[in-house]
Design a protein around this nucleic acid. Structure first.
Lengths: 163, 163
DNA sequence: TTAGTGAGTTTAATTCTTCAACTCAGGGGG
DNA sequence: CCCCCTGAGTTGAAGAATTAAACTCACTAA
């Protein structure tokens, strides 16, 4: 029985993974979200090989996830730092989701190594409560279980024949 | 100025990525969430090489993300299908987050190819509204912006010296 | 007996990662 | 001035991962 389904290749998940699905890319973004800015910071925090770090940063910059900004420490020459664009910061929910999944199923026996907290940049430590990622629909139903959602074709869907 | 920060290697994000961060792994999980169960289904939907699919499925099974279950079509020999465990289904928020990010920044000009909808398995199509992933803290503050959260050490954190 | 199918293996070519060594531009000490 | 130091990369060779294509295996159907 033939049916038409969403083309799995023309999908934003696949496109997203083609940008941030390479080894190290999401870890670089995570460190950037945590304040890393300079080549050497990424290198020493992650232990990634230098040449790979250079190509990953370049990939992330051309993809619009990061931006290369010149900086100059007093009494030193000009160097470059890497900071997240708004597009890069928008990966936070993805990283929180991965963190939560890892904490739930692969955690250290000691407990989670990282807790994400509600701590706005401008106010002090107003709330500080742990943050979770939740699925919520446009009608306001929140905390949906994974089984309560399904994929449907959108306006840009290509449909393909499939068994 | 020395400071102690969270060891980036002892982190659930890194552990999660060591399980689902390989090329194809998350796409295999996505297809499984969308109903794929058999070797050939994954193969033809994704166009992945057969040997890689075999090793990825094996990795996912040993990691506890999927389960290998025997099945037998009438008048055919016994074969094996692959289905998600609860741990595998728990990757849904991660995939929705990636999908949303891809839709926002890398979308097809036609619009998103996939829309995730609130459609519980048991009830019919009760709600059907589009689903988004949101950050929410334990105090009930919802729809947090990426800038409003930060990482803090948890009970299992190892701290390392860093510049 | 011969052909066909789903589910994999095997193999060889290509690509990606890693590690180590090297470059390049400036700063500081002697 | 000369030599060594640092941060930020680049280059090159060895090792690991990915790909495509051909092959196996167990069984069914004609």
């Amino acid at each position: 029985m033939e049916m038409r389904r969403i083309d799995p290749v023309n999908c934003s998940v696949a496109r997203a993974l083609s940008v941030v699905g390479e080894r190290w890319s999401l870890l670089i973004v995570r460190e950037a979200l945590d304040g890393a800015r300079r080549f050497g910071e990424f290198h020493s925090r992650l232990g990634i090989a230098r040449n790979l770090l250079a190509t990953r940063l370049e990939t992330l910059v051309t993809a619009g996830v990061m931006r290369r900004v010149p900086y100059q420490e007093p009494g030193d020459r000009q160097r470059f730092a890497y900071e997240l664009t708004e597009q890069g910061r928008a990966l936070r929910p993805t990283l929180v989701a991965l963190l939560e999944w890892g904490d739930t199923y692969l955690a250290d026996p000691q407990g989670p190594s990282v807790i994400v907290r509600h701590r706005p940049v401008d106010e002090g430590s107003s709330c500080d409560e742990p943050v979770k990622v939740v699925l919520e629909c446009a009608a306001g139903h929140s905390h949906l279980a994974p089984e309560d959602v399904c994929r449907t074709p959108g306006p840009g869907a290509r449909l393909v024949e499939s068994s």
